[in-house]
Every structure is written in C-alpha cells, then in structure tokens.
C-alpha cells in the first residue's frame, strides 16, 4: 500500500525490509531522520542501532558488522561522508559489502545544509585512497530511493563491494507517496562463505585489507578491476526522457533531473525539442548511452545540469568525446535552479 513517506524515513524502512539489521551513524543535517527512524525501528525487528561517537567510528562499526555477515548500513551528509572515507577504502579493500547513504549538502568544508551535488567526484572517483570503486546510485524520487535501497543490499553482497546512494536534502526532506517492498526473511538470505561469523569448524577466515606482498596485492587489484568490469556490464542504469527526436539533451541526475524534466515539458510546449539522459548509476557511468546520442545528427548540444560548479560534466565530455558541444549549467551553495531558468538558458543559447 502506498503511504506518504518522507525521503529519509522511506530509505530507512526500505533498508529494514531488505534485511538491514545493523545501523551505525552520527547526526548531521539533512539526513537525521534516517538514524532517528533506525533508532526505534531496528529495535522492533531485533536489530542493533548505535549512535557512534564519530563518523570514523560509525563506518568502522559497519566494517565489523558487515564483516561478520550482517546487512549493515550507515548514512551521513557530505562532511560526515568525508570522515568515513578511510573506512570506505578499507571496506572496498577487504571486499566487505555494505550500504552507505550520502544526503549531500553544500560545501566545501562545513558549508551549508541546503541541497547540493558537490560530492560527485568524491563518490565516483574514489573518495578514499587506493584503487577502488563503490557502486554509486543517484535516485530521483522517493519510490526510486526505496527500490534501490532495497536491492542495494543484494547488489553489495553479490559483488562484495560497498554500495553508495547519493541524494540531497531535497529528496531527504520531501514527502511523496511510495510503497515499501515486502520484508525479507533474513534467515533465508544467501549464506556468506567468507564472513567471520563463527567458528566454522575450526577453519580460519580472515578479513583484512593489508597485502604487503606486491604480487599478492597486484593480484587483488586485478581481481577488483575484473569485478568493476562485470559491474559495469551488468549494473549500469540510465533513464532517457524524450531523447529520440531531441535537439538539446540535458544530462542530470537525482533531484536536478526532475527539474530538467519539468523544463523539457515547458520547452516542448513551445516546440523546442529537448530531452534528458538521467544516469541512475553514477558509477558505473552510462557512457555508452550518452555516446550513442552524441553520434545522432539531430542532436545540437548537450547541457549538463548540476548543483555544483561542474563535476559530472567531465564524464559527459568523455562520453561525448568531442562529437557535440557540451555545456554546463550549475547552481551552488544550496541554491536550486528552477525549471524556468533552464527554459531560458536553452531559448537564449540556441
């Protein structure tokens, strides 16, 4: 049944439905409803909630709980996610699956609490040290946040990688009707033959990320690279909106993609053919889809729209590969563009 959900609370309930029983966090606006909800709800389903003494501590608790085979999650907002980066690198190195939510706020530094997409580089290009990736999703509605959170735990387990979902305060704070999928029976989840969960008949299982021998580490790096390649093949997700006859193609993700859609509807009413490519996964990036449209004669240009001074635009340029102009429209500091701003931009620029 559909209920009117606040974004942050819907994410928390979807995680519990997916079998998440361990949550570790530290408060920061605009994601506080996630730990708040988890604090009472996990108790009802026999899980554990810990408000850690810091973000560094919280992410390492995730490492511990997920390393023991549990479905574990943490959430934060930009400055807090920065603090978690060391732990995320360790999780990736040790191949411990988990789910991390980043409800981005404007930065750099402590910045502000209003919506932003300034953590694109951090989320998709590493964030922590070393040669690793998280799978990064950027849902655009509360239902999509629910559905992706729900499947993120399975995806993380399948590849043994951390999965990150990024949104912003707008998606975290707003309410929309959404339906939570059925509660999974945690006793029926696939067994983890690598988890350090019990004695296992005296066999030793070890989870760590230290590999001092260069050959051993290189082998590990190659193994991770193969996993990322497989993820790119199987997990890339993208939505296209009215692109088939479009002369102007917006590329945007998350809440901004929705603003683009509203602009496209306006532009089309005036006979201007605009469309949208919305990456749902930011890593792996839907390079092929963008490249496909870059080859089309009818397309005049791409306009990347972000709540930053220009980050994803670099990946759009790589995908377009010089075949068409790639422009950038951004707002920052927590200010959000309005549909009319983008209508004006296209009309004045063409």
């Amino acid at each position: 049944m559909k209920k009117l959900w606040k974004g942050n609370e819907a994410i928390a309930e979807a995680a519990i439905a997916a079998g998440c029983r361990y949550f570790f966090g530290y408060p920061i606006t605009p994601q506080n409803e996630i730990p708040e909800y988890m604090s009472w709800r996990l108790n009802e389903v026999g899980g554990s909630f810990v408000q850690a003494e810091s973000e560094v501590s919280a992410i390492n608790m995730v490492y511990g709980a997920a390393g023991a085979g549990g479905r574990a999650m943490t959430s934060s907002s930009s400055p807090g996610i920065s603090l978690k980066q060391e732990g995320i690198s360790y999780l990736a190195g040790a191949m411990v699956p988990c789910v991390i939510i980043n409800m981005m706020r404007s930065g750099p530094g402590l910045g502000g609490i209003q919506p932003s997409q300034g953590d694109y580089f951090q989320a998709t290009k590493g964030g922590g040290h070393g040669d690793y990736h998280c799978i990064v999703y950027a849902p655009a509605s509360i239902q999509e946040f629910v559905d992706i959170t729900y499947k993120a735990f399975d995806t993380a387990d399948r590849y043994r990688v951390p999965v990150m979902l990024i949104g912003d305060g707008m998606l975290g704070q707003m309410m929309e009707p959404a339906e939570i999928p059925p509660m999974k029976n945690i006793n029926r989840l696939p067994k983890k033959d690598w988890a350090v969960d019990c004695n296992n008949g005296g066999t030793q299982r070890l989870i760590n990320s230290i590999k001092i021998d260069a050959n051993e580490l290189e082998e590990h790096n190659i193994h991770l690279a193969q996993i990322y390649e497989e993820i790119a093949k199987k997990e890339t997700e993208v939505e296209t909106y009215l692109c088939d006859d479009a002369e102007y193609i917006f590329v945007a993700y998350g809440s901004v993609a929705r603003i683009c859609k509203a602009s496209i509807d306006e532009l089309r009413k005036e006979g201007i053919k605009a469309g949208l490519i919305r990456p749902i996964t930011l890593y792996p990036y839907p390079t092929k889809t963008i490249a496909k449209y870059a080859k089309k004669r009818i397309v005049k240009k791409f306009v990347t729209v972000e709540l930053s001074m220009g980050q994803m635009v670099e990946d759009v340029r790589l995908a377009v590969n010089g075949k068409k102009p790639v422009e950038f429209y951004g707002r920052a500091g927590g200010n959000v563009m309005m549909p009319g701003d983008l209508v004006k931009y296209i009309k004045e620029g063409k």
């Binding site: 707008m170 929705r258 859609k261 309005m338």
Partner: peptide
C-alpha cells in the same frame, strides 16, 4: 507523474 518538486510560479 510530478517532475520538479520545486515551484517557480
């Protein structure tokens, strides 16, 4: 379906 949740006018 609702595109932008923000309202300019």
């Amino acid at each position: 379906p609702i595109a932008a949740p923000v309202i300019d006018h």
